[in-house]
Amino acid sequence: MKKSSLLVALAVFCATALVAVSSQAQKQEASEIQWLTDMGTALQRAKSENKPILLDFFNPN
């Protein structure tokens, strides 16, 4: 009995930790613009997600 409640507690702990990690990952995702570097990939995603493309030509220097 004790062992099974320990297991349940462990499972709950793991699930909570997973949720915490994934929500942190989502927050990180939103902390910067998700730039692609390849135009071919961008065109595929634009078509499949039905979104326009922002193409930024920049000077790294």
Binding site: A42, P52, I53, D56, F58, N59
Partner: peptide, 17 residues
């Protein structure tokens, strides 16, 4: 606001000039 707007409305690509 810029990050949120671009990520949810557009596919963003960045390339050298």
């Amino acid at each position: 606001a810029v990050i949120e707007f671009i990520n949810s409305n557009m596919i963003a690509v960045r390339v050298r000039h």
